[in-house]
Structures are given as structure tokens and as C-alpha cells.
Design a protein around this nucleic acid. Structure first.
Length: 464
RNA sequence: GUGGUCGUAGCUCAGUUGGUUAGAGCGCUAGGUUGUGGCCCUAGAGGUCGGGGGUUCGAGUCCCCUCGGUCACCCCA
């Protein structure tokens, strides 16, 4: 054991768990490509100003959770705490045609106290659709998130929705809320008694009993929407009904990022017992472009944390359809050179194969072959060297008979199986070969010990 | 950042009120007569008991600090 370990809140992903993450990304990719979203790759760090947009930004994420640093050129930079601001920055920089529909997968960094389902580096997949405030896009974004999670096999999902108003109606609402909280500030929880005025909306998100009691009678944003926002929201709700996507209206769903306007949403997995049960969330950010110094451009998107999705999958017993193991495992009993030749030939032909090293015994190599979950073992030892042959062994005895008849058709030029080996195979499986397979027991000499192109193609086809 | 809790082999965990060379299962490696895996049997490797300091004749067991996990808060994916 080394004296070093991965930093707090980070983790190493080893095979096969790493493949589960890769599977999530693959499934997300194929899902969003159905809706014509294109991949965007943007830097893992940005100018600090991309995330800290003026003094108005008081979200915790920006004020105390960011990994900030100064590079050798004196630039103030930050590791991306979330994806949306980066994508919007890229959009404004390159000015692509709208609607700009992009998906991403990227690590995100937040300096928080780690917990299960909450890491200092975590990985998000996300979508952004920039350039229109059509509520049809709200439906598209929300349905993609919901359908993707459902397609993974997750049940027990809860979609929460709210509308936060826009620049027309929110200021008036905030004044209402402000005066209400001012009147009741002495009843708020200890923390908000002092901090409520910094961001009054956050009080609505507070779970302390004092605040919960106060916010029940507080003015609700969605009762004070302007006609445009109201229409937008109602159109979305109707569309969700039509799409048969169940949702809960949540007056208190405020979310932590300042740029959210109008539609906000969050999907929680009720299978996750901890407080970190949100597996995806997002909303409309019609003001973000302006805050970044661009033209006023509406947009909507969401991000989903892969670590949490994976936790939810594990909790619900989702099985990932992964194909483990190579097709062929080469066993070399005469020094290892032959294994080198054969594996290289197979790989160049596109056949996945593995071998063992260090001149292990036959028994040991077969054990490795078994553990590798290879379908076939290809053995070359003294005998094969003598008569210029190779022995092919099916590692899954149950499938052997079916394969043998098929393989006999095309392996005749190079596979040699000695009769005693075949009888061993027969007795092992407890089955005897039928008459039509009898020719298979004959010996086939090969002119070249390397498999021919034809055989490679056939094996490849066979194991597809 | 605040508070609680935990930290013994690669993994899951035993380890009596502090007392000899720290254990088990799984995994790993090698064997089980001379070339055939999975099951079984045998043996072996692997631990500065998270790290550092202290109390003591003696600490895996007690105290302090620190690192890490975990839970709640905060906040969020």
C-alpha cells in the first residue's frame, strides 16, 4: 500500500464498475441522439467570471464550493462546478445556428463535505437547448431526462416542477415575498433570521421547522405569474399530461443557481434513502446569456449525476447488459512466442483475445482462460508443435456441440484435434457426438500454423 | 464549513475487562504424479491493526491530533 490515496471526495473507477459508468454514458448518448442533440466538449476549467457573474450571484455553489485557482499567467480560473455556464459561454463565443441543441458528459468539481452520492469530483451528463423559449422545448428536455432514466430500468422516480417567473413578474413577486419575510423574520430559523434578505427565495427551500411553518403562508410565485409565464407554464403542463409524464407541482422548488427562470424541475429517485436523492435537475435560464455579456438568448437544460444514477440503479437491482471477456484465450505451453503471434493475428483481424504470461502451467492457464470468460481456448504445446497443429477447446461445455458442427465447416484447414482430446471432451460434457459430427474427429493438418483470413472472418462472424 | 459515527489482509468481517509470534471466509498463487478450466482437497503469499503522538511493564484495544469513509446539517447531480 502506498502512502498516497485519492483525494477526499474523489474515487477510482476500476473495471468492471467503470464499465457501468461507460454504459450509462452510452445509453445517454443514444437516447439524446434520437432527439438530434450533438456532443459538445468544453474545457474543464473556465475563466472565473463564467461562473461568478457579478455581485448578484450569492448561490452557495459559487460563493463557497468552487475550486478556484490562479494559473502561472495570473489568470483567475475555476474548475467547472456545473456544465450550463460553460455551454452558454461556448454558444456565445461561436454563435452557432439556433436552436443549439448540445449534450455533454464531463466531470464537475465542488468543494463540499463528501457523502455517499456527493463527491468533490462527480460526473454529469447533460443537455442544453439554446435559442428559443418555446415551451415545446421544455417538454423535450424534461421528457428526455425522464425517459432516459426510465429506460435504464429505474422506477420510483419523482418529477417535481415549478415556475419561477421571469424578469416581468419576478421582481414584483420578490417584493411581496420580501415584505412578508420582513414581517415574519423573527419566526424564521436561526440562520435565515439573519440571512433571509440575501436571497429570499432560498427560504422557501429551507427544511427547518420554523421556516417550513412560515413559508406555508408565504406568497407563492406561481400565483403571481405574468400572463406570458402563466401561459408558458400551463402549455408545458398540458404537454406533459399528453405525454403521460407524471409530475408534482412544488411551490418550493427554487434550486441553487441564480440564473434559473420560469421552468425549473428536478427528478428524485425515491430508492435513494439519503438526502442526496436528486438524479437530475435543471430549468430554463433565459437570463444567463445576458449575464455573460451576450445578447438576450433563452435556453433550457438539465444535468444528471452519473454517480447518483448508478447508486439508484444498484439500489433497484438494475442489471447492465455488459459483454465480458474475449472470444479466444490462447494457451502456449512452449515458451510464449506462439501466443504472441496468435494473439496479434486475432487482434489485427478484430477478434478479441487474451493470453497468459510468465510460462504458467496448463492448469493455471486454463484457469485464467476460464476466469477471463473467453468462449474458446486455443492451445499450442509440444504435440501441436510436432504435427504443426492447434487445439481448439470450447470453454462452455453446454454450447460445445452446437458450435462444433458449425465450426467444422470452416476450421478444417487449420484446426487439429487429436482423437484422445476429443474423447476427453466427450466424457467431460457427458454427451456423445452424433454420427453426422463424426468427421469432426478426423485430424486436420495445417500448412500454416496461423489461422487463415477466412477462418478469422468466420470466427468474427460467429462470435458477433 | 458544523455536529455524530466508523477505519483490522485485495474484499466482507472476528479479535473477550489493555497481556505471548493478529485470525476466518472469499479472492490470489502453487500443487493434488508426468497435457486439460469451472467443483473439491492441501499448502503458500499478503497486514508498520488508516497515519502520528501520548498513557502503560505491555496498546488492534485507553487519550489527543490528523487523514479517510459514512450520516445529519448546509447545499446540490
Amino acid at each position: 500500500m502506498t502512502s498516497f490515496q485519492s483525494p477526499s471526495g474523489t474515487k477510482d473507477w476500476l473495471y468492471p464498475e467503470s464499465e457501468h459508468m461507460a454504459y450509462l454514458v452510452e445509453s445517454f448518448k443514444s437516447h439524446v441522439e434520437l432527439a438530434n442533440y450533438g456532443l459538445i466538449l468544453s474545457p474543464m476549467f473556465e475563466d472565473l467570471g463564467v461562473f461568478v457573474r457579478g455581485v448578484g450571484d450569492v448561490s452557495e455553489l459559487v460563493t463557497k464550493e468552487m475550486y478556484e485557482f490562479v494559473d502561472k499567467g495570473g489568470r483567475k480560473l475555476a474548475l467547472r462546478p456545473e456544465g450550463t455556464a460553460s455551454v452558454m459561454r461556448a454558444f456565445l463565443q461561436h454563435n452557432p445556428p439556433v436552436p443549439f441543441k448540445a449534450w455533454y458528459v464531463a466531470p464537475s468539481f465542488r468543494y463540499e463535505r463528501p457523502q455517499a452520492g456527493r463527491y468533490r469530483q462527480h460526473h454529469q451528463v447533460g443537455l442544453e437547448a439554446i435559442g428559443t423559449d418555446d415551451p415545446g422545448l421544455d417538454l423535450e428536455i424534461i421528457s428526455i431526462l425522464f425517459d432516459w432514466l426510465t429506460s435504464l430500468g429505474l422506477g420510483n422516480l419523482s418529477l417535481k416542477l415549478n415556475c419561477l417567473g421571469d424578469t416581468n413578474c419576478r421582481p414584483a413577486y420578490l417584493e411581496l415575498l420580501y415584505s412578508y419575510l420582513e414581517k415574519n423574520q423573527k419566526f424564521l430559523c436561526k440562520e435565515h433570521m439573519e440571512r433571509w434578505s440575501v436571497n429570499p427565495l432560498r427560504v422557501l427551500d429551507c427544511k427547518k421547522p420554523e421556516c417550513v411553518a412560515i413559508k406555508e403562508d408565504a406568497p407563492k410565485i406561481n400565483k403571481h405569474l405574468c400572463p406570458d409565464c402563466k401561459l408558458h407554464f400551463e402549455t408545458l403542463l398540458a404537454a406533459l399530461d399528453t405525454a403521460e409524464i407524471p409530475y408534482l407541482l412544488d411551490d418550493y422548488l427554487v434550486r441553487g443557481l441564480d440564473y434559473y427562470m420560469r421552468t425549473t424541475f428536478e427528478v428524485a429517485s425515491l430508492s435513494l434513502e439519503s438526502a442526496q436523492n436528486a438524479v437530475g435537475g435543471g430549468g430554463r435560464y433565459d437570463n444567463l446569456a445576458l449575464a455573460l455579456g451576450g445578447n438576450n438568448t433563452p435556453g433550457i437544460g438539465f444535468a444528471s449525476g452519473l454517480e447518483r444514477v448508478l447508486l439508484a440503479c444498484e439500489k433497484e437491482g438494475v442489471v447492465f447488459p455488459l459483454d465480458y471477456g474475449p472470444s479466444v484465450f490462447v494457451i502456449d505451453l512452449i515458451g510464449g512466442h506462439k501466443a504472441g503471434e496468435l494473439t496479434m493475428t486475432f487482434r489485427r483481424a478484430g477478434v478479441a483475445c487474451d493470453r497468459s504470461f510468465d510460462n504458467r502451467s496448463l492448469k493455471s492457464q486454463l484457469r485464467q482462460a476460464d476466469k477471463s470468460r473467453a468462449k474458446l481456448a486455443l492451445i499450442v504445446g509440444e504435440r501441436e508443435k510436432q504435427n504443426n497443429s492447434l487445439q481448439l477447446k470450447w470453454l462452455d461445455a453446454n454450447m460445445r456441440e452446437r458450435f462444433s458442427a458449425f465450426l467444422a465447416d470452416f476450421l478444417d484447414s487449420y484446426v487439429v484435434s487429436e482423437s484422445d482430446d476429443l474423447s476427453t471432451m466427450k466424457s467431460y460434457s457427458g454427451k456423445s457426438y452424433s454420427g453426422e459430427n463424426k468427421d469432426y474427429t478426423e485430424q486436420y493438418q495445417i500448412s500454416n500454423t496461423l489461422p487463415t483470413d477466412m477462418a478469422i472472418r468466420a470466427i468474427k462472424e460467429f462470435f458477433k
